[in-house]
Design a protein around this nucleic acid. Structure first.
Ligand SMILES: Nc1ncnc2c1ncn2[C@H]1C[C@H](O)[C@@H](COP(=O)(O)OP(=O)(O)OP(=O)(O)O)O1
Ligand SMILES: [Mg+2]
Length: 662
DNA sequence: GGGGGAAGGACCA
DNA sequence: TTCCTGGTCCTTCCCCC
């Protein structure tokens, strides 16, 4: 699983001072002008015809990062521009910039059009939405966002303390991060190594060592768990915690608790972290950037304080608003979150329903107030891609495809999944990206199959783009089917798929696993407990049945799984003790791990048999009637209804929506 | 009008 | 001379029911 961290920023206009509580002493000293610069840059953008937007874009996505206070952005931008000029990468960026500019003009034209119309209805709708969201506001929780400082660099520095005062960066062709000394030169994550060298010729480059970072991240998480055992790691160096309970139990203020936590992390792991404390995750995330490095910032759980906080907040600082959307919003007149209100009646028509709701939520400073461990989350795809020297020889391309397929097989084995959709990605020498996908007739994971199904896509692309020259190739599988025995997802009743890891009988290519094919329920199933069993298959005798021949019987498949995650349904009435709802049959079960697993095994194997039978009958769908069987379809919709609010998904990086009222 | 697949793209670390 | 990698979600288009 990949994971990482976040951006940063500071500067608070005077008027926010009153509402936002600064909880770290060193804060006052470190104010920056990045915000101001950013705004200036955007202002410049609006009507400009020149290279301003391109230069701004070339600054990279992380210009809001901490440690830039003393940087002369325009000088940096000039150096980057000159270093990049003339390259293919640059040409591509120019083209993108042109496209964006066209889109901006369309937005402006549309807005001008809308201004002539009577938008009373749209304004009323927006007000209704505001009112509705307001009802869901929850100010009862204390959410903390923790973010390690210059994470990879800090970890490297532990092994090489002599680097402490020298500018250094981690990464190869592109930097993953750099220390704060290097940031003074304008060096940032995501920047090309050679550009960074132009900005800072003495810059020392260190290779990535992900195992080391992951190990360190685990150490840090161990400490976080003391403060909230159900914390959510959002990336390798970031986590959300709900410390409401902790503070209550220990009679501590939130700021004190977080100070203590940060101190503890520093003392035991030697890594400094920054934190934001607020009423919800979105605000906490913004706050954690304010006193970076090694600082914290608290925003009171108070509506007025929050509204004041959002009022002058540059939209770009909100997670989910990047370089492009920032420009588009600016074109519509929205630069700060506070600006959203006066333009509310246009937003839906200009940016669509989702973005509109997202923005309204931002204006109100709403966000998730429930935090849940990431283990309860189901991965959606696995993929691998590699950049190499330009290539256009068909034989070589096939060889590369084969390699990619093998890499992907290894990754899929590691995370124990197969996929029903295979996606190929090519980046041409011009940096233009092409993707093609197919649904495979069966879930696949073996290199032979991955190759077999992706080759025709490659061939087609070669045909459509004669003489195609490629600098990157990737493969990705989606519509995953778990090959784990009982995976944790099951416990959330979200979705469960199971299949034999050796459903290989179908493929002539893998005779080696063939011996093992007992019940090959290669297909996936999706279980929506209530609907599926409570509605038409109560079958009271399930429990009584002996555990039917376990369909899964493979070494690796057995290795993992069987991990119990507490039911997130925390309202489990305390008086009655706790229970888990079986994700398969929906009935409450003992929380005893062994008993529960036994019960689930039973339910699962029962499902397995049923599905195998069913498959025998209705097998065909994939090729033509590709899509869901009527049953699955119904179940799927059922699920959506059941989960109700968008809330559910615990995707750490969920972008839009979710003003979870918990 | 809705579901789904396919292609492209924004965004995040 | 040179600009990564792995993942999520959204939008737009299309076909089909
Ligand atoms: N574009 C990227 N590609 C790959 N890895 C990245 C990228 N950006 C960041 N990372 C990695 C390296 C970082 O150390 C780690 C955490 O990211 P992030 O929190 O944004 O920065 P940081 O921790 O290095 O500095 P900061 O002090 O600003 O938080 O994720
Ligand atoms: Mg960080």
């Amino acid at each position: 699983m990949t994971e990482l961290s976040e951006p940063s920023e500071e500067l608070r206009p005077r008027n926010e001072e009153a509402s936002a509580t600064v909880t770290d002493a060193k804060q006052a000293a470190t104010t920056t002008k990045v915000d101001a610069d950013t705004i200036k840059a955007i202002d410049a953008i609006d009507g400009s015809e020149g290279t301003d937007t391109l230069k701004y874009s070339l600054l990279g996505p992380s210009l809001l990062k901490a440690g830039q206070d003393t940087v002369d952005q325009s000088k940096v931008s000039e150096i980057i521009y000159n270093a990049s000029k003339g390259s293919k990468f640059f040409a591509r960026e120019e083209e993108r910039d042109r496209q964006h500019t066209i889109k901006i003009e369309q937005i402006q034209a549309k807005k001008a059009q809308l201004e002539k119309l009577d938008l009373t209805r749209d304004r009323r709708n927006a007000d209704a939405l505001l009112a509705q969201f307001e009802l869901g506001r929850n100010l009862t929780q204390s959410i903390v966002h923790v973010d390690c400082d210059a994470f990879y660099a800090s970890v490297e520095q532990l092994d090489r303390p002599e680097l402490a005062n020298l500018p250094f960066a981690v990464g190869g062709g592109v930097l993953t991060t750099c220390n704060y000394v290097a940031r003074k030169f304008g060096v940032r994550s995501g920047m090309a190594g050679f550009v960074a060298k132009k900005l800072c010729p003495q810059l020392i480059l260190i290779k990535n060592n992900f195992d080391k970072y992951n190990a360190k991240a685990r150490e840090i998480r161990e400490i976080l768990a003391e403060y909230d055992p159900r914390f959510e790691s959002a990336s390798i160096d970031e986590a959300y915690l709900n410390i409401t309970e902790y503070c209550e139990k220990h009679g501590m203020s939130r700021a004190d608790a977080v100070n203590k936590m940060r101190k503890e992390v520093h003392e035991t792991t030697q890594i400094t972290v920054s934190a934001g404390i607020a009423a919800n995750s979105k605000l906490a995330k913004i706050c954690s950037n304010r006193n970076k490095p090694n600082g914290q910032f608290e925003l009171a759980n108070d509506r007025d304080a929050i509204m004041e906080f959002m009022k002058d907040l540059p939209a770009r600082q909100v997670n989910g608003i990047g370089r492009v959307f920032e420009r588009e919003l600016a074109a519509a007149g929205v630069k700060t979150c506070g600006d959203i209100y006066e333009h509310r009646k246009y937003l839906r028509q200009l940016f669509g329903e989702k973005a509109y709701e997202f923005l309204i939520g931002i204006y109100l400073g709403l966000g998730r107030t429930y935090i849940q461990p990431a283990e309860g989350y189901e991965r959606k795809s696995v993929g691998t891609e590699r950049t190499f020297r330009d290539m256009n020889d068909p034989a070589q391309l096939r060889e590369q495809l084969r390699k990619t397929a093998e890499d992907l097989e290894a990754d899929m084995k590691k995370v124990e999944v197969k996929g029903r959709t295979l996606c190929i990605k090519l980046k041409m020498h011009t940096f233009e990206v092409l993707t093609r996908q197919v649904s495979t007739p069966r879930a696949v994971c073996l290199a032979d199959d991955l190759y077999k199904y992706s080759l025709p896509m490659l061939a087609k692309l070669e045909q459509d783009f004669p003489g195609i020259r490629i600098r990157l190739m990737g493969l990705r599988c989606t519509h995953l089917v778990s090959t784990k025995k009982v995976d944790t997802m099951a416990f959330f009743g979200l979705k469960k798929q199971q299949e034999s890891s050796d459903g290989a009988g179908q493929y002539p290519s893998d005779a080696m696993t063939d011996r093992k094919r007992k019940a090959e329920l290669d297909g996936q199933w999706e279980v929506w407990p209530e609907e599926e069993f409570l509605n038409h298959e109560p079958s009271p005798d399930i429990e009584a049945r002996p555990p039917t021949a376990d369909p899964v019987d493979d070494e690796e498949t057995r290795a993992h799984g069987k991990e119990i995650v507490p039911n997130p349904k925390k309202e489990a009435t305390p008086g009655e003790g706790e229970w888990f709802d079986c994700p398969i049959c929906g009935r409450p079960q003992s929380t005893d791990e062994r008993q529960l697993n036994e019960h689930i095994d039973l339910c699962l194997s029962r499902r397995a048999i049923r599905d195998t039978l069913q498959e025998a009958q209705e097998q065909q769908p994939p090729p033509l009637a590709r899509g869901l069987t009527p049953e699955t379809k119904r179940l799927k919709t059922g699920n959506e209804k059941r989960r109700g609010r968008p809330s559910g998904t615990s995707d750490p990086k969920q972008r839009k929506l979710f003003f979870g009222t918990s």
